[in-house]
Design a binder for these strands. Structure first.
Lengths: 237, 237
DNA sequence: TCGTATATGTACGCTAGGGCACAGACAGTC
DNA sequence: GACTGTCTGTGCCCTAGCGTACATATACGA
């Protein structure tokens, strides 16, 4: 039984949730629900970006692709963020691949509508700029992390970030997949994950990984985890 | 003898040059010349950012700092860019170190004035968003490059980028310094630079490096050089 | 129930680059 | 000219992680 003045369910995406209620209401007609299906590619490098995505749950990864096989995750987007920043920046394509690596749901919006909204003023563009800053920090920190920190620290960090966004201890994940995220060989993942498992920090079998000891993982992970987390938490409600 | 309507010298900084003339004129009172002195630190991680800088010549590096010694250059800013993006994004500090690594001159502007100007509408914020996109691309591409490409390719790329911005073949540079940029040991730089010198692509002695063969360096460098260069060239006049 | 595809476990040699320890070489200063 | 600080050149050993090549193990479908 729909009420005369329908209750506005608060958005689960934290960016949308940070908007003043009236602004969110204005956006609403342009937002459509979109399921995030594991493994689905949102866009490839060079593709025209037709929609921007606000995950409510699940994870979208942004990968840098070099050569024709090597990939590296440069950003991870969950409900704290948005995929499609280039549109906000006035660019129609991205050099990255965007791929769903944690099933969930998102709201999405046509790039055209989004672009219009961004130029309307209000707090939306301000919020997106703030988010962009966090993204830039994440990518830069990640670059350094990648250069200086050993693989077990990076793996632990990656698992923590994933866990935070999936809000569950168990997720779908193969070693092959992980190797594409971390930019290392599958065999290397095997070894490193093996030692984490021996330490009872995680357990995994055939495509499923479970984190067992959050604190333990944090101890193995580098400071980068905290830095990036704080960066996002600092401006979102 | 000052004319009644003073001739407006076109700005050398390419971002400023991309502004409509009247907008640039509006900015002008807030801009002051600032010499870029080799080695000078513009800001440290966590510092309050008081000014933003538009180099007209010379280079400012943005470094990610991890632990208490390791640094990695995550962005290089010459006359195509600007230092102080966080201010534009609504943040008062940066997690990076900004340091002059090529002497030159810049125009700078108080962060407060800049912030006001950004909220005035007009093409300035649009331009900065476009620039931010290029920066993000640079950092992401750099992260992947850093992960997958061997040191000689990265060194060659770095030299080319520096050359482009300094607009000269000879620049001030020690191996120690280079090692902090590339995030490798000084000894490694020595070896790699040595082979480039044997190939007659560069020559150097005690703090001065000269690029001898641009085409040769491009051949050694990875594709990342072109990708990043095109990214910036694509929107600047 | 068996076959097949996909995930995982390992092993062995190789290479780039880190850690460390100096030895020259050059430039500026007293 | 001697002294000193800063660059540069090397060498040796060590480790992390790559390349390659298989050997299992598990899930799922015919």
């Amino acid at each position: 039984m729909p009420a005369a003045t329908p209750k506005l369910a608060p958005p689960t995406n934290r960016l949308l949730a940070a908007l003043p209620k009236d602004e969110y209401r204005r956006l609403l007609p342009d937002l459509e629900p979109f399921p995030l299906v594991f493994g689905e590619v949102i866009y490839e490098p060079g593709d025209l970006i037709r929609h921007v995505y606000f995950p409510a749950s699940g994870i979208i990864s942004l990968l840098a692709v070099v050569g024709d096989r090597a990939t590296l995750e440069v950003a991870i987007v969950g409900r704290e963020g948005m995929v499609g920043l280039p549109v906000f920046m006035g660019v129609k394509t991205s050099r990255n691949r965007a791929v769903v690596r944690g099933a969930g749901a998102a709201m999405r919006m046509k790039a055209t509508a989004y672009r219009k909204e961004c130029n309307n003023g209000g707090s939306f563009p301000r919020l997106l700029r703030r988010y962009t800053h966090s993204r830039l920090t994440q990518v830069a920190q990640g670059a350094a992390c990648n250069r200086f920190h050993p693989m077990d620290a990076r793996l632990a960090q990656w698992l923590l970030m994933t866990r935070d966004r999936m809000e569950t201890d168990e997720f779908q994940l193969t070693q092959e997949f992980l190797s594409n995220m971390l930019g290392v060989r599958r065999e290397g993942v095997n070894k490193t994950a093996g030692t984490l498992q021996q330490k009872k920090l995680i357990s995994y079998r055939r495509g499923t990984l479970t984190t067992l000891n959050r604190a333990g993982l944090e101890a193995v992970a580098c400071q980068c985890y905290r830095i990036i987390k704080e960066e996002y938490d600092s401006f979102l409600p």
